[in-house]
């Protein structure tokens, strides 16, 4: 290292590289993704094919949608830990309601609790100024309770995954998963919203400096309430999609994805303190985590060692990323 910094020509080169990486933070992330895929290919040659890619995308999409909730809320300095419960509720309600109702009606019924929980979250955080972590944990506790009571009432009715969700969740046409039909417009909408609409700018403004935003005439509670409702609805949609993918109704359907969704947003470069980040990084983060999970599954390791590696890698990637971005 001392050699490279000593030579006059390589020093600016090094600087230029770090400068480039901090200007385009997506580049190192995508590089990391390709390194992971390369390792995967070396570990078990021939695994990288069309089917594998379709499968990876299929499992990355639900995670990416949940991570969108985290990205949006984290931009304002918040976090939404109720997404797992909301998604589970939506998934569970849709399979139980579509026994008696039309699938479209069932889906609308399934999204109703999402809107209610999002509204309560928004009022708690925006009006009463409760810490988002506590507020969303609390509502998710209530949601789990409601879901358990609901389960009692419908247990005899049986379940049925609507054909449409089945097609959307697991179907593949022309080598591409059908879930992309939902995800691509959704992601485009989120990115467009964050970059070019007033609401998106407000999120950054509130997260960057709440007092300044307030003094500039932003109605804080309205922004926050709309944000948490949006986050909950996204989680609800993810629940519907995930139910089509997993096809096994359970009361902990999306719960295991909550913490990885936070990790995906953080790896993607969204600051947990607000005001910085975006959705493109988050999507790459979600794919990285999915590939990482596959990689750790292929390594013949005990479950415990896999979890240790997962945690350490998330931490290392986040630390390295922060260094690159802040090293200006």
């Amino acid at each position: 290292m001392s050699v490279t910094t000593a030579s006059p020509q390589s020093a600016p080169m090094r600087k230029r590289v770090t400068r480039f990486m901090s200007d385009y933070p997506l580049v190192p992330l995508i590089a990391l993704l390709f390194i992971l895929i390369l390792i995967l290919q070396i570990m078990s040659p021939g695994i990288i094919n069309e089917r594998w890619m379709a499968n990876t995308v299929k499992f990355a999409i639900p995670l990416a949608i949940l991570a969108a909730c985290q990205t949006l809320t984290m931009l304002t300095g918040g976090i939404d830990l109720s997404v797992g419960t909301v998604a589970t509720m939506a998934g569970f309600i849709v399979v139980t309601q579509s026994v008696n109702h039309d699938p479209a009606v069932a889906m609308l019924i399934a999204l109703a609790p999402a809107i209610i929980i999002g509204f309560v979250n928004g009022i708690g955080v925006g009006v009463f100024r409760v810490h988002p972590l506590i507020m969303t944990l609390g509502t998710s506790l209530i949601g789990v309770g409601c879901l358990q009571v609901y389960q009692r009432t419908v247990i005899a009715g049986g379940t049925k995954v609507p054909d449409f969700l089945n097609w959307l969740g697991t179907g593949v046409s022309y080598g591409l998963p059908n879930a992309l039909l939902l995800f691509v417009p959704l992601a485009a909408l989120i990115i467009y919203m964050l970059r070019s609409t007033g609401f998106g700018r407000l999120l950054y403004a509130v997260g960057d400096n709440e007092n300044a935003a307030r003094l500039a005439g932003v109605h804080y509670w309205q922004v926050i309430t709309a944000l948490y409702i949006l986050s909950s609805v996204l989680a609800g949609i993810m629940g519907l999609l995930y139910m089509g993918l997993i096809k096994a109704p359970s009361l902990s359907l999306a719960e295991p994805l909550v913490l990885p969704s936070v990790a995906a947003a953080v790896i993607g470069g969204t600051s947990i303190f607000g005001g910085r980040g975006g959705y493109t990084g988050t999507m790459v983060g979600a794919v990285i985590l999915t590939v990482l999970t596959t990689l750790l599954t292929i390594l013949q390791m005990p479950e415990g060692a896999r979890r240790i590696l997962f945690g350490l890698i998330v931490l290392l990637v986040t630390a390295a990323y922060l260094r690159i971005v802040e090293d200006r």
């Binding site: 913490l259 953080v266 005990p302 415990g304 896999r306 979890r307 350490l312 998330v314 931490l315 986040t318």
Partner: peptide, 16 residues
């Protein structure tokens, strides 16, 4: 974020 990552690490260690 750190303690979130450590949650996985400690859980894994407990399983080991």
């Amino acid at each position: 974020v750190v303690t979130l990552a450590m949650l996985f690490v400690f859980q894994g260690a407990a399983l080991l």
